[in-house]
Simulated scan of single mutants.
Amino acid sequence: MSSLQIHSNDPSEGVVVVIVTYGDRRELLLQVLDALPGQGVDRVVVVDNGARWSVKEDLSADYGDFLDVVEMSANTGSAKGFATGIQRALNLGSGYIWLLDDDNRPRGDTLPLLREAYAAAAVNTPRDRLAVVAFRAQFNGDLAMGVATHRINPPVNSFHGFHVRDIPYKLWRRTPWGSPHVCGTLPATVRLDATPYSGLLFNRDLIEAIGLPNEDFVLYEDDIEFTHRITQKDGKILLLTNTQLDDIESSWWNVGSRFRNSFVGLLKGEGDFRAFYGMRNRTYFDSACLKRSAWIFWVNRTVYMIVLFVFATILHRKKRFGILRQAVKDGLSGRLGMHKRHPL
Rank of each mutant, 00 (worst) to 15 (best):
F139E: 07
F139L: 11
F139M: 07
N140D: 15
N140A: 10
N140M: 12
N140K: 05
N140H: 15
G141N: 14
G141K: 10
G141V: 03
D142N: 13
D142R: 11
D142T: 07
L143C: 01
L143N: 03
L143Y: 00
L143F: 01
L143W: 00
L143G: 02
A144S: 11
A144I: 03
A144D: 06
A144F: 08
A144G: 12
A144L: 15
M145I: 05
M145R: 15
M145K: 13
G146T: 12
G146Y: 12
G146D: 10
G146H: 11
G146L: 12
G146C: 14
G146F: 12
G146Q: 12
V147C: 04
V147Q: 03
V147A: 05
A148W: 08
A148K: 14
A148I: 03
A148Y: 06
A148P: 08
A148V: 03
T149S: 14
T149R: 10
H150A: 11
H150P: 05
H150L: 09
H150N: 14
H150S: 13
R151K: 15
R151D: 08
R151P: 03
R151G: 03
R151Q: 11
R151W: 11
I152W: 05
I152R: 02
I152L: 09
I152G: 02
I152D: 03
I152T: 07
N153P: 08
N153F: 05
N153S: 13
N153M: 07
P154M: 09
P154A: 13
P154K: 11
P154H: 11
P155H: 10
P155Q: 12
P155A: 12
P155K: 14
P155F: 12
V156G: 06
V156I: 14
V156S: 13
V156T: 15
V156R: 14
V156H: 06
N157M: 01
S158G: 08
S158V: 02
S158I: 02
S158Q: 00
S158H: 01
F159G: 09
F159I: 09
F159A: 10
F159D: 07
F159S: 07
F159V: 10
H160T: 01
H160R: 09
H160S: 07
H160G: 00
H160D: 02
G161W: 06
G161V: 05
F162I: 00
F162P: 00
F162W: 02
F162Q: 01
F162R: 01
F162E: 02
H163F: 04
H163Q: 06
H163G: 03
H163V: 08
V164R: 05
V164Q: 01
R165C: 00
R165P: 03
R165T: 13
R165I: 08
R165L: 15
R165D: 10
R165Q: 11
R165F: 10
R165G: 09
D166K: 11
D166V: 02
D166A: 12
D166L: 12
D166S: 12
D166I: 06
D166F: 11
D166C: 06
D166P: 08
I167H: 04
I167S: 03
I167F: 02
P168Y: 06
P168H: 08
P168F: 04
P168S: 06
P168G: 08
P168T: 04
P168Q: 06
